[in-house]
Design a protein around this nucleic acid. Sequence first.
RNA 1: GGGCCCGUAGCUUAGCUUGGUAGAGCGAUCGGCUCUUAACCGAUAGGUCAAGGGUUCGAAUCCCUUCGGGCCCGCCA
Length: 534
Amino acid sequence: MHWFDELFPRIESFLGDRSDIVISAGLSVSGLQHVGRLRGEVILANAIAEGLRKKGKDVKQILILYTQDSWKGKEGQLSQFDGESGKEYIGRRLIDVPDPKGCHDSWVDHYWRDFGDVLDDFARDVKVTSTTDVYKLDDMKKNVLELLGKADEIREMVNKYRGRLKYPEGWIPFEPMCKECGKIGSAETLSISEDGQVSYKCSCGDEGVSSMEEGKLNWRLEWPSLWKVLSVDIEPFGKDHATPGGSRDSCKDLAKNIINLIPPFGIPYEWVGMSSEGTDLGDMSSSDFKGFTPREWLELGESQALRFIYLQANPSKRIVLDLAKMDIYHDHLDSGYKSYWQDEKGEEDELRTRTYEISAVEHIAREGMFILPYREASLLTQISPAEDKMHWVVSRLTDTGILTKELSGDEEQYMSERIDLANTWIEKHAPANYQVTLLEELPSDVKGELTKEDMSSLTVFRERLEGTDWNEDALKGTMMQMTKEEDFPVKTKRFFRNLYLVLLGKEQGPRAAPFLSILQKDFVLGRLDEATQS
RNA sequence: GGGCCCGUAGCUUAGCUUGGUAGAGCGAUCGGCUCUUAACCGAUAGGUCAAGGGUUCGAAUCCCUUCGGGCCCGCCA
């Protein structure tokens, strides 16, 4: 059984007959908004939201940006600024840190773009909000004031979870913004008035007043407060909060005993790492600027391919992404499509089918679509002429019998998109052995790879080409005929190996006839001469 | 020091809750398609289920220990 189908009924029974459901997740815009953050906060949440919608529930999916949190000024964050210029922003709210690149209004705005602008491609109907916005809500203000009335009680509970640094009597669980130094979290709250004015004393020496909505609650209260104010029913959260006795448990405790609230159904999930050339580079990290963004993913691959990866694996398992494996990821997606429309399904097909179903962004692709494998697309794009590429590809596929029908509009559209993606992949991330690069010069070591017979086979080919028309059919005919002759010096397979070697420097390559036909005849003849000279 | 998650063929993984000595896809190798390669079809190879121990007639599956990757148990969120 698919892990999703074990999880989902548990959620349903938690929800009971409630019909208006909120599923929420949060993230801090501390830096690079990498694709790992799509896993739990966006895609997992969305799959559940969609599942509930199918059951007739009215579901709202929220993504909360923790913009009110302070900017830590970690090494990776500071390095975004010129020299030391970032240091002065340490301790400010994320929303108050300027854009180090100067092209957006703020840090948050700058780094959010590569994620937020393409969010809709990965999950529909996600309502994005921020803690900065939430603190401006009347409900939140009312909630904060209520909590302040229970300061003693709260202090006792929070101190249970703290080691030596217990909060002293009279502590107010609110972190005001200091008007003087602009920081959050470095001032002590002295009092808060009913109309939301916070008197504080800051470690910078300032004693002043700032508005409640500029500050924030202590995190152990903030989290449960968001649950309350936004009426959160379901919430995925990262593994850092997941350990029993860890942060989320303490927040649940506060929620139940202070706010009198049933905590949302929580779903812990593992993080996403990245690897390159077989080496695990570790988990993606926002503030360390490690990873790649959803926008970068979309240059190379379909959003559903990523959803498929994320939803196939149990949330408790770590996933490692490698952009060099884009072809494999699309193969997985394609096999999901195939299984989905298959009549008789084995167990494996059933699992793939479920993954495919819940990975669909908006609707499931119709039956019988012609789907060009990504790897094939990556080859074709390299050997096709730049102009009228689609036409060339379609006729290639038709000639080889891979394509046996007229493509409909949506099929052609899909193929064209995939070719574009694969093209970018080849340019930027594909393994070297997938790259078909015509050797401008014949390297000397290639000749060392050729035996006398190898050379002789190329010589024969060179002679035959003289009288061959330079088009695919004629080339194919010549090669077929030639390699079948009794006295041809090498086996067919060896001949192609030789041909690829002198043209590409590799033993394999794209289908020879169509490939040769788009090259200049003189170039090919010249290369063969060069390779066979003793 | 305590706790939690993860570790199955080169890669992605199913099976683990309710024990009966491992299934699949991709890749690889070989062969087929009277168009040869990275499409398609067929076959083959590849796993002491991280390691060791225990329970059991029998363990990938339950228990213990160890190793490896990571997280939490201070602050911060």
